[in-house]
Design a binder for these strands. Structure first.
Length: 358
DNA sequence: AACAGGAGCAACCGCACCACA
DNA sequence: ATGTGGTGCGGTTGCTCCTGT
């Protein structure tokens, strides 16, 4: 009990390593291996404790360490694994060759955590931050009251401020809601698609349960809305802009695209020919796998590889109940196209969703 | 040019776990 | 069963560099 730390011995150096120390350590390990870390410093002629040597070797000097910026792929892997494993940095590191747990931990704390927070997600649970939703109106109201008291605003001004605040709050809540729905729908696929069997079974089962509940919630909330959304996706094609990336709406926020929206199906219903069927894919613009959302609309960019005629075409969004299966969708609003093209399509999220939630 | 504040990262600290005597 | 040494791991600290004023 209460074993003294290995670095308590007097006279042992702490702090940054010098190139000379590094050289001694590397040379010794190359020649003899590290053996007992406690014995190593003396043998290598280092005035350090064994623990310090071990850390320096495993986190910095090891020859197989990959340096430099994390790739997009590595970033996705970390996000995905962290959503399942939590702060198990060493476990996450085993999936990223050449990266140390320390490096991943630092990358998480300095980049990814902030990124998730900025997107409105709780970095620990990977769920939308409900604390913001629940407290935002109160915080805003409080801030507004203080503001009014400080500046003795007229009643009209106060009313105007309150309306502005309400609008702002509703806007934020909508973003949260949309992100929530999309993320809940995509997570089960993340888990199911994982081929790694080393995850803790209980964690997996718990996650699956949660995802099941989330999906039920999604269905409960938006069973009615879902049809409306699918309908809107199809009918709104009349407003689409063709082959023009600049048609992306302004004042929107990027969001992660759920897996079930990776592809949309389409039918080309010519008056003269038999139906043609095919697949269109959600294509990317500036941000890979991102869609954008503004006040009430989820914008996705859809690529349709080719169409043999200018026959009317109907877009069938995937069924959120059964991702990948579009058969139960009946939206058939037509739009004429010829040849490869891409569209910005919009999926509406309307106020009633918010009412349903409250 | 000087300073302050923030970001990034290497290194440290302390606890937990395991193997072994 | 218990104590001890060795190692692994996650959280935290503090130094360095960068950027904005």
């Amino acid at each position: 009990m209460g074993r003294s730390p290995c670095c308590d011995e007097n006279g042992l150096k702490k702090g940054p390593w010098t190139p000379e120390e590094d050289q001694k350590l590397v040379h010794h390990i190359h020649k003899h291996g590290h053996g007992s870390w406690r014995a190593l410093p003396k043998l290598a002629g280092l005035n350090r404790c064994g623990k310090s040597c071990r850390l320096r070797w495993t986190n910095y000097l090891r020859p197989d360490i990959k340096r430099g910026k994390f790739s997009q792929e590595e970033e996705q892997t970390i996000l995905h694994l962290h959503s399942i494993l939590g702060n198990k940095w060493s476990a996450i590191a085993t999936h990223l060759p050449g990266r140390t747990d320390n490096e991943i931990k630092n990358f998480w704390n300095t980049h990814l955590k902030k990124k998730l927070i900025q997107m409105g997600f709780d970095p620990m649970t990977h769920q939308p931050r409900t604390d913001i939703i629940s407290t935002l109106p109160y915080l805003l109201a409080l801030a507004n009251m203080t503001e009014m008291m400080e500046h003795h605003q007229s009643w009209d001004d106060q009313q105007a401020s309150m309306s502005l605040l309400q609008a702002e709050t509703v806007h934020l809540a909508k973003l949260q809601c949309l992100q929530y729905l999309l993320q809940q729908s995509s997570n089960p696929l993340n888990i199911i698609n994982s081929n790694n069997n080393s995850y803790d079974q209980n964690t997996l089962i718990t996650n699956m349960d949660q995802q099941q509940q989330s999906l039920s919630l999604l269905n409960t909330i938006s069973n009615v809305k879902q049809n409306q959304i699918i309908d809107n996706a199809a009918t709104s094609f009349s407003d689409m802009n063709i082959d023009n990336d600049n048609s992306q709406p302004l004042h929107h926020q990027n969001i992660l695209l759920p897996h079930f929206l990776d592809q949309v199906s389409f039918n080309s219903q010519s008056c003269l020919n038999n139906n043609e069927q095919g697949q269109g894919t959600i294509i990317t613009t500036n941000n890979n796998n991102f869609a954008t959302v503004d006040d009430e609309t989820l914008w996705i960019n859809i690529n349709i590889p080719s169409s043999s005629s200018s026959a009317p075409i109907s877009i069938i969004p995937p069924n959120a109940n059964n991702p990948g299966d579009a058969s139960s969708s009946t939206s058939t609003t037509s739009y004429g196209v010829g040849g490869p093209c891409s569209y910005w399509s919009e999926l509406f999220f309307e106020d009633p969703i918010m009412h349903d939630l409250s």
